[in-house]
């Protein structure tokens, strides 16, 4: 009798302790910091009855290993447009029912036209936010503001230059070499970019790998010029009273765009679609714009919830700006050649 009681009691405790995890209304998102910020997620949780657990990634390279380690953990992910195709090809994500997403038709057509989020006529990613991989300099360090990528190769700035520790370094060096078709570089062009980066290496103070690290480098007076995720690190630095200016060099800049993707066979489809609807609505679009300083993918929502100044500052009214960016593309089977070139620069 007592054993039975104890057992029932134990089961009860077990049931109680596991209940929140098994509840229908919980979604786990694997995303960038800021994309599930309490400033707008709390309102969503209250209105929808779905609670949100966020896990943050530090780079696009984190998505595949995390999902490979076993399924069933995450319901939604937000890779950038150079990684979305990989997620589709790895069979980690499922096609979206775009009819169930209210704001779908308000998304910039330019984003909906991108190959990286589609396969066989179906959409796998919902464009969410975008921006440029701009360049940035410390105001005090320059009498004449830098305008070109050549400024990142200047001898007199030796030990004061930083570059993102990412395969995108190849894109930067290729543009400096005058090779503008940066996502379709030939082996010779990649080798030339690699050589340019090796030549630049003695001038580099540190390759930065996280947003916080770059902010620290500027704050500690270690570097004066670098590339940056436009809008993000510069606002963190502004908050610290470090005066930096972003610029798009003559050689142009890459653009990125992040999309929400639904992980294959998620049991929480209902909450997942509620979440997608919220993220593409004014709440989500202005939420991420306010927290991260990124531009919104839904121009209509942005117009409604942004101040005119913010709307202009984030280039929402400026299609030419968006067109000028070299939006990241999946490298598919060329990916290895690019990463290998970058790794070999770092190995030197």
């Amino acid at each position: 009798m007592t054993t039975k009681k104890t057992m029932i009691g134990t089961l009860g405790i077990l049931a109680m302790s596991t209940a929140p995890v098994l509840a229908e209304g919980t979604i786990n998102v694997l995303t960038w910091e800021g994309y599930a910020d309490p400033s707008f997620i709390t309102q969503f949780e209250e209105q929808s009855g779905c609670s949100v657990n966020a896990t943050y990634v530090g780079s696009n390279d984190d998505f595949a290993p995390k999902l490979m380690a076993g399924g069933g953990v995450y319901d939604l992910i937000t890779p950038s447009i150079d990684t979305t195709k990989l997620m589709i090809d790895l069979d980690f994500v499922e096609p979206l029912d775009t009819a169930m997403i209210d704001g779908w038709n308000d998304i910039y057509p330019k984003f909906l036209a991108l190959d990286g989020i589609q396969k066989d006529g179906a959409y796998y990613g919902m464009p969410y936010s975008w921006g440029a991989i701009a360049f940035m300099y410390l105001d005090d360090a320059f009498e004449t503001p830098p305008t070109s990528l050549n400024d990142l190769w200047r001898e007199d700035l030796k030990g004061k230059i930083s570059l993102w520790d990412d395969k995108s370094a190849i894109y930067v060096a290729a543009r400096k070499n005058g090779d503008m078709d940066i996502y379709n570089l030939s082996d010779e062009q990649i080798a030339a970019a690699q050589a340019a980066l090796v030549e630049q290496k003695p001038l580099i103070r540190k390759y930065w790998s996280t947003a916080g690290e770059l902010v620290d480098l500027y704050k500690a007076g270690e570097v004066v010029i670098s590339n940056t995720w436009a809008g993000y690190q510069s606002s963190l630095l502004a908050a610290e009273d470090v005066k930096v200016t972003e610029f798009i060099p003559e050689e142009g800049a890459e653009g990125w765009m992040d999309s929400w993707m639904v992980v294959k066979d998620t049991p929480n489809k209902e909450c997942a679609y509620k979440f997608l609807n919220m993220q593409i609505s004014e709440l989500g679009q202005c939420g991420v714009a306010n927290v991260n300083g990124y531009s919104a993918a839904n121009a209509t929502a942005a117009k409604n919830c942004m101040t005119p100044e913010q709307f202009t500052a984030l280039h929402q009214d400026d299609p030419a700006y968006l067109d000028s960016l070299l939006i990241w593309q999946p490298l598919a089977d060329r990916f290895e050649v690019y990463t290998n070139a970058w790794n070999s620069v770092k190995a030197q």
Partner: peptide
């Protein structure tokens, strides 16, 4: 990662890159 410079890549960093970024 924390105090090394551009010429500071060690073998463990290369392994981490192969399992992460390079997916190899």
């Amino acid at each position: 990662f924390l105090v090394g410079g551009p010429d500071g890549n060690l073998i463990a960093n290369v392994i981490a890159t192969q399992f992460g970024a390079a997916l190899n």
